[in-house]
Design a protein around this nucleic acid. Structure first.
Lengths: 222, 222
DNA sequence: TCCTGCAATAAACATTCGTTTGAAACATGA
DNA sequence: TCATGTTTCAAACGAATGTTTATTGCAGGA
């Protein structure tokens, strides 16, 4: 099984280096030399550097979507026809996110990659993730809609992204933040600690009172 | 005033391109040709690409810190000795953030740059910002501490970063999110709209109930 | 045993990058 | 007007990048 070995060694090395330095800052030569494979192996097995980046994400997101879909199936069955409470939806998503990388990879790396996917230019990545995994996200947001009928659609849309920002930002910058927290508060924080801290904050954010309607602006074409 | 013209033209062009594509993905040739200045001008006026990146940030952050310090001065004077309510602190920060770029530059660009500063590798940038502007942030967090005495220090630390994540993530990805929101909800959202929406969410997040204490874990060295 | 197809390898390719150089153009003050 | 210091400019440098090529090694089936 020589092929599979080379492929996974490339993926294992690439995901760590990407998470540490970003995509543009990580050269194929750095990856291949650290993985102890030939430079041309990346282009041979994946086609291009872009395709390698997407493959790194697919290795996380494919099992995630499978598990998340079935977790939502089970949740819907349990509440047969009824509304699933917001807390359970968030809980299920958190559990799935924790489960998937735990098997083999690092949750920290996964979160770091997600953060990069959003902030780095890499237009092709955003497009790829949107097209490939947009549907599972749509299913989730539809369930959230049913769980929060009092929220206007636009307001829920923005709040979901506020929360997404909190999670991705915090978990993807975990290392740097942990260093500060450890120095100042002498406590070693794990990802699970953070999720425990995130839960009440996220719930409170989603349930916050509605903002006042926008002040009447001077009419202006836009 | 030929020099100053070249310098500002480089800065104006660089900040837009950096915000659009990231630092590593923007070459000096792209910047200088778009700014219609000679390629060598960057190294002549700034010394290096790294220094140019820092200069782009300094042009935003220098006036910001000046204004923020004096806004906090005024706030402290008004509450002479007493505690400044959390809402006022957040309000003051938001107002200052809105004020500074409004004069000349784009708030959107500034937020995008902040998001990049956090996520892109660019260790030198994080270090530079920390060393150069860490003190004003410390002053702010100290006031937040007085405003939220019921929060354990560590909890407040994390919640502040949760909120920071929300703001930076949302505002730095504003363009992409706005496109979706506009398509789905037929509403054109401005930065000010977003801040109006952010306020109750942020306040609710900071005032959320405390998380349960960590479950007793099996003893494990770590 | 020979053949076919896949995988690994070293080498080279063509760009692109940040930076440096040395001369030209320019402005300023004596 | 001349001398001086600063800014602009075209050109080149050396290093690093992603990708391609041609060759070699090696497996399993006819």
């Amino acid at each position: 099984m020589a092929q599979s070995d080379t492929v996974t060694r490339i993926l294992d090395t690439a995901e760590v280096l990407f998470a540490e330095r970003g995509f543009a800052e990580t050269s194929l030569r750095t990856i291949t030399s650290k993985a102890r494979v030939n430079l041309a192996a990346v282009n041979y097995h994946f086609g291009s550097k872009k395709a390698l980046i997407q493959a790194v994400f697919a290795r996380y997101l494919d099992p995630f979507t499978v598990r998340f879909h079935s977790a939502l199936d089970e949740l819907e069955a349990r509440h047969a026809g009824g509304v699933i409470p917001l807390e359970e939806l968030l809980e299920t998503m958190a559990r799935t996110v924790l489960e998937v990388p735990a098997e083999k990879h690092s949750l920290k790396v996964f979160m770091k990659l997600l953060g990069l996917a959003y902030s780095q230019a890499q237009g092709h990545l955003r497009r790829y993730i949107q097209e490939e995994y947009g549907s599972v996200f749509s299913r989730f947001t539809e369930l959230v809609r049913k769980a929060t009928p009092e929220l206007p659609d636009a307001e829920r849309f923005w709040r979901l992204h506020f929360v997404l920002g909190t999670v991705i930002f915090t978990l993807s910058g975990l290392d740097a933040l942990r260093d500060i927290a450890e120095k100042d508060y002498q406590e070693h924080v794990t990802v699970r600690d953070l999720i425990r801290r995130l839960r009440p904050v996220v719930v409170a954010a989603m349930n916050a009172p509605l903002p006042p309607p926008p002040a009447a602006q001077p009419a202006k074409a836009s």
